[in-house]
Simulated scan of single mutants.
Amino acid sequence: MGAGLTAFGSLIWLFWPENFLESLDPEPLFVFLVSAVVWVFTEFKFNDDIENARASPNDVRNARDLLRLHAEEFRTLLKHHDTFQFLDVAYYNLVSQLLRRSQNGSFIFQNKELANKFRSFCTALERFDQFVGSHTAPELIAGALRTGFKPYQRVSQEQYNQCLNLAREANDLASEAWDKLTLFCEAVKELVPEAFDEPLSEVSWRSVSS
């Protein structure tokens, strides 16, 4: 707007005299041309900034899913849960589902900063997922499948201690993934504020079988 007013003022300066040909002055003409170029550039830049500030529907939808997981399921699994203890496999299935959707391109972010932070989170989450998958197997307990490092059958003290150590490693990996997810959610507050317009709901793809 300021650049536009400057250009307009220069135009008045240029054409104010009655005799245009005699009063044509190169100095105001130069000021007008420069101001006009700056004005056009500023308008285009302003429009680009508005366009870039608008989050895509895809980014809003996926950001809301991760905000929900950060507030609920992943908060339980990655922050509060001790992996030595048994937990319903549904929590671990969500991890596998999210990683699979990320790998096949059905869960991505168009915003470059969010995409980088999400990729960093997925790298940490995959390390956790692979570690748990390599050292545990679901057990049917009280009618439900549950996963944990705690031995379900009687074992030697040495084996029990090994399981404890593995659980500590898994807890460290979970904490790393949680920290990456928290960094992502902090970026969402700045880059996709639209994600907070409605109450968070259960992720749409949770019912997909693992």
Score class of each variant (00 low, 15 high):
Met1Phe: 10
Ala3Ser: 11
Leu5Ser: 14
Thr6Val: 13
Phe8Met: 11
Ser10Phe: 10
Ser10Asp: 15
Ser10His: 10
Ser10Arg: 10
Ser10Glu: 06
Leu11Asn: 01
Leu11His: 03
Leu11Met: 05
Trp13Ala: 06
Leu14Met: 09
Phe15Gly: 05
Pro17Tyr: 01
Pro17Ser: 05
Glu18Ile: 13
Asn19Arg: 09
Leu24Ser: 15
Leu24Met: 15
Leu24Glu: 11
Leu24Lys: 14
Leu24Asp: 10
Glu27Ser: 07
Leu29Cys: 14
Leu29Ser: 12
Phe30Gln: 12
Phe30Pro: 09
Phe32Asp: 02
Leu33Val: 11
Val38Trp: 03
Val40Gly: 10
Val40Met: 08
Phe46Glu: 15
Asn47Gln: 14
Asp48Tyr: 14
Asp48His: 07
Asp49Val: 15
Ile50Lys: 15
Ile50Arg: 12
Ile50Thr: 10
Glu51Ala: 06
Ser56Cys: 01
Asn58Tyr: 13
Asn58Met: 15
Asn58Val: 12
Asp59Phe: 01
Arg61His: 02
Asn62Asp: 03
Ala63Thr: 05
Asp65Val: 02
Leu67Cys: 00
Arg68Gly: 04
Leu69His: 02
Phe74Gln: 01
Phe74Lys: 01
Arg75Glu: 14
Arg75Pro: 12
Thr76Glu: 04
Thr76Trp: 09
Leu77Tyr: 00
Leu77Thr: 00
Thr83Lys: 10
Phe84Lys: 09
Phe86Leu: 05
Val89Thr: 12
Val89Leu: 09
Ala90Glu: 14
Tyr91Leu: 08
Tyr92Asn: 10
Asn93Met: 03
Asn93Asp: 10
Leu94Gly: 02
Val95Gly: 06
Ser96Val: 05
Ser96Asp: 12
Ser96Glu: 12
Gln97Glu: 07
Leu98Val: 04
Leu99Tyr: 06
Ser102Gly: 15
Gln103Asp: 14
Asn104Ser: 02
Gly105Glu: 08
Ile108Ser: 07
Ile108Gly: 01
Gln110Val: 09
Ala115Val: 04
Ala115Leu: 05
Lys117Ala: 00
Phe118Met: 02
Arg119Met: 02
Phe121Gln: 04
Cys122Ile: 11
Cys122Tyr: 11
Ala124Pro: 14
Leu125Pro: 06
Leu125Cys: 04
Gln130Gly: 12
Val132Arg: 04
Ser134Ala: 12
His135Cys: 08
His135Tyr: 14
Ala137Cys: 13
Ile141Lys: 10
Ala142Trp: 11
Ala142Ile: 07
Ala144His: 15
Thr147Asp: 05
Gly148Ser: 00
Phe149Leu: 13
Phe149Ala: 06
Lys150Arg: 15
Pro151Gly: 08
Pro151Gln: 14
Pro151Ala: 11
Arg154Lys: 14
Arg154Thr: 13
Val155Ile: 12
Val155Trp: 11
Val155Tyr: 12
Ser156His: 04
Ser156Met: 10
Gln157Val: 10
Gln162Trp: 09
Gln162Glu: 11
Cys163Phe: 08
Leu164Phe: 11
Leu164Met: 03
Arg168Asn: 03
Arg168His: 03
Ala170Trp: 00
Asn171Pro: 00
Ala174Tyr: 02
Ala177Ser: 05
Lys180Ala: 02
Leu181Gly: 09
Cys185Glu: 03
Cys185Met: 02
Ala187Leu: 08
Val188Asp: 07
Glu190Lys: 13
Glu190Pro: 00
Leu191Arg: 06
Val192Trp: 00
Pro193Leu: 09
Ala195Ile: 06
Ala195Arg: 01
Glu198Ala: 13
Val203His: 03
Val203Tyr: 00
Val203Ser: 01
Ser204Met: 02
